[in-house]
C-alpha cells in the first residue's frame, strides 16, 4: 500500500524542518514533504500551515505566493488541516502586530499583543515573548486531544496571542490574559504552541493529527 501524503506548506517563513522531523518520527506510514508546489499540496491527504516571525512578512508571502488560495482550497476539500504558531494567527481575521495586519479570516477573532506591564505572583515583571512550557486546559473534546490529559504542558514562544472565543477555542492557556492555545472548526485545527517541540504530548498530538480524517 502506498503511503499517505502529508505536505507542510513552504512559503519561505521559518524553520519547517523541525515540523517535518517530528511527523517522520510519529507517522512512518506517511510521506512527509515540505513544499510550495500547489499541485503537490492538492494531492496531499493532510496539510500543515506552519509559520514563524512577523505576521506582516508572513501575510505578505502568503498572498504573494497564492498560499491564501491554497489554504482555502484544501480546507474546502475537507482535508485534515493543521496550523502552527503564526500559521494559526494567520487564520484569524486581524492581527494587531506591525501596526495592524489583515489576515485570512477563517476565524472571526483577533490577534492581540501581551501587555508590557504584566507581573507574576511575586510581583516580578513577566517577560515577553511568552517562552517556555505552559499548561493547556482542554475546553472541548476533540480527536486531536486523544491520549493527552487536560493541563498538559506544551512549548510556546510568541508575543501575540489569539483572543479566546467559545465558538472556536479547543484549549486555553493563561499568561497574564487568557488566550486560545488551540482553535478548531470542522477539518481545521491550529495550535499556538509548537507540538513538534513539546516532547511526548506534542508528538501525541501530531500522531493524532495523522490519524484524523477531519471529522468531529
Amino acid at each position: 500500500m502506498s503511503k499517505h501524503l502529508l505536505t507542510i506548506i513552504d512559503y519561505g517563513m521559518g524553520n519547517l524542518h523541525s515540523v517535518a522531523k517530528a511527523f517522520e518520527h510519529v507517522a512512518d506510514n506517511f510521506q512527509i514533504e515540505v513544499t510550495s508546489d500547489r499541485a503537490r499540496i492538492a494531492e496531499a491527504d493532510h496539510v500543515v500551515l506552519p509559520g514563524v516571525g512577523a505576521i506582516r512578512d508572513c501575510m505578505a508571502e502568503i498572498r504573494k505566493q497564492g498560499v491564501d488560495t491554497v489554504v482555502a482550497e484544501n480546507l474546502s476539500a475537507g482535508k485534515p488541516f493543521l496550523g502552527i504558531c503564526v500559521g494559526m494567527q494567520a487564520l484569524m481575521k486581524h492581527s494587531d502586530e506591525n501596526n495592524g495586519v489583515a489576515c485570512l479570516g477563517h476565524f472571526d477573532g483577533a490577534v492581540r499583543q501581551f501587555p508590557k506591564d504584566l507581573t507574576d505572583a511575586h510581583q516580578l515583571p513577566m517577560k515577553v515573548p511568552h517562552m517556555g512550557w505552559n499548561n493547556v486546559e482542554q475546553t472541548v473534546e476533540h480527536p486531536l486531544w486523544h491520549g493527552i490529559v487536560s493541563d498538559s504542558r506544551f512549548y510556546f514562544v510568541h508575543s501575540f496571542y489569539v483572543e479566546p472565543h467559545a465558538d472556536y477555542t479547543a484549549g486555553r492557556c493563561q499568561y497574564g490574559p487568557e488566550f486560545a492555545a488551540m482553535i478548531y472548526r470542522d477539518n481545521l485545527f491550529a495550535t499556538q504552541f509548537h507540538p513538534e517541540k513539546s516532547h511526548t504530548s506534542g508528538l501525541q498530538l501530531l500522531k493524532n493529527f495523522t490519524r484524523w480524517n477531519g471529522a468531529l
Binding site: A121, G132, W133, R153, F156
Partner: peptide, 8 residues
C-alpha cells in the same frame, strides 16, 4: 498554573 521555569 503559571509558565514553568526552564532547566537547560
Amino acid at each position: 498554573m503559571p509558565l514553568a521555569k526552564r532547566i537547560i
